[in-house]
Computed example of a mutant assay.
Amino acid sequence: MRLDIITKEDLQQFKTELFTELKDIIGQKKETNERQWLKSAEVRKMLNISAGTLQNLRIIGTLPFRKIGGSMYYNRSVIEKIIEGDMYEK
């Protein structure tokens, strides 16, 4: 029967590797955990615009939205295109 001896240094190294892997997994999950649909307040903050400007963008059709109940929701990918300057010039 073979016997392996585990030292404190081995355990410390294992702990360090484990924490590193867990941080990577959690970081990846945060990146993919972004919601597709954003509320009005989030969009106003991202675009740095007022509620009136957001309403005007909806009215003229520049910014597509969905109304669910009393709340407006906007697609994140459209907002990101606006930020990149592909759809709307501030």
Rank of each mutant, 00 (worst) to 15 (best):
Asn56Arg: 14
Ser77Val: 11
Thr53Trp: 00
Pro64Ser: 09
Tyr73Asn: 08
Lys39Gly: 13
Asn75Ser: 00
Glu34Thr: 08
Ile60Leu: 08
Glu42Ala: 15
Trp37Thr: 11
Leu54Thr: 04
Leu54Trp: 02
Ile60Asn: 15
Thr53Pro: 00
Leu54Val: 02
Thr32Asp: 07
Ser40Lys: 04
Glu42Trp: 06
Asn48Phe: 00
Thr32Ala: 10
Lys45Phe: 10
Gln36Tyr: 07
Lys67Pro: 01
Arg35Ser: 11
Leu47Asn: 02
Leu63Glu: 07
Thr53Leu: 01
Ala41Ile: 14
Met46Thr: 05
Gln55Asp: 11
Tyr73Thr: 12
Asn48Glu: 06
Thr32Met: 14
Gly52Cys: 03
Gly61Ser: 10
Thr62Lys: 15
Thr53His: 01
Met46Gln: 11
Leu38Ile: 07
Ile49Thr: 00
Leu38Thr: 05
Lys45Asn: 15
Met46Tyr: 08
Pro64Asn: 07
Gly52Trp: 02
Ala41Pro: 01
Glu42Lys: 13
Arg35Phe: 04
Glu34Ile: 07
Gly52Asp: 07
Phe65Gly: 02
Glu42Arg: 11
Gln55Ser: 15
Met72Gly: 04
Leu38Trp: 07
Gln55Pro: 00
Gly61His: 09
Pro64Val: 05
Val78Ser: 01
Arg76Val: 08
Thr53Phe: 00
Thr62Tyr: 06
Gly69Leu: 11
Gln36Leu: 14
Gly70Tyr: 03
Arg35Glu: 09
Val78Glu: 02
Ala51Ser: 14
Val78Ala: 01
Asn48Arg: 11
Trp37Gly: 10
Gly61Pro: 10
Gln55Val: 09
Ser77Tyr: 14
Ala41Phe: 10
Ser71Pro: 00
Val43Trp: 04
Lys39Met: 14
Asn56Phe: 06
Tyr73Val: 12
Arg76Pro: 04
Glu42Pro: 07
Ser50Ile: 08
Arg58Met: 13
Glu34Val: 12
Ala41Leu: 13
Arg58Val: 09
Arg35Cys: 05
Gly70His: 05
Phe65Asn: 08
Met72Asn: 12
Arg35His: 09
Arg58Cys: 15
Gln36Thr: 13
Ala51Pro: 01
Asn33Trp: 09
Trp37Met: 15
Ala51Met: 03
Asn75Lys: 12
Arg35Ala: 12
Asn56Gln: 10
Thr62Gln: 13
Gly69Tyr: 07
Gly61Asp: 10
Arg44Phe: 02
Asn33Ser: 15
Leu47Lys: 02
Glu34Trp: 01
Lys45Arg: 15
Ile49His: 01
Lys67Tyr: 04
Ser71Ala: 12
Lys45Cys: 11
Ala41Met: 12
